[in-house]
């Protein structure tokens, strides 16, 4: 077995843990939000993301 000390917590996973979110609650996460979670593992666009802090005014 190769020593593991150097692989310790300095390397957290970039993927969010969705196992404990009830499926019924999952759509509370917008597609933008899911896209940020899943985007690293999927080719192509997951959604047309809304720019962060985007303009928001009615006329």
């Amino acid at each position: 077995m190769v020593p593991t000390e150097e692989l310790r917590p300095a390397f957290p996973s970039a993927m969010a843990d969705l196992r404990d979110i009830p499926l019924a609650e999952m759509p509370a996460l917008s597609l933008d939000q899911l896209g940020r979670v899943l985007g690293r593992v999927l080719p192509g666009p997951v959604a047309n993301p809304m720019p962060s802090g985007a303009f928001q005014s009615s006329i």
């Binding site: 077995m1 190769v2 020593p3 593991t4 000390e5 692989l7 310790r8 390397f11 957290p12 996973s13 970039a14 993927m15 969010a16 843990d17 969705l18 196992r19 404990d20 979110i21 009830p22 609650e25 509370a28 996460l29 939000q33 979670v37």
Partner: peptide, 23 residues
């Protein structure tokens, strides 16, 4: 659940698992 689950680190591998895969 949403606030807690997506706010914490993801399902990372254990140290041993990562080291095993590296070999």
């Amino acid at each position: 659940h949403v606030a807690q689950a997506t706010g914490r680190a993801g399902p990372a591998l254990s140290d041993d698992a990562l080291a095993e895969f590296a070999t």
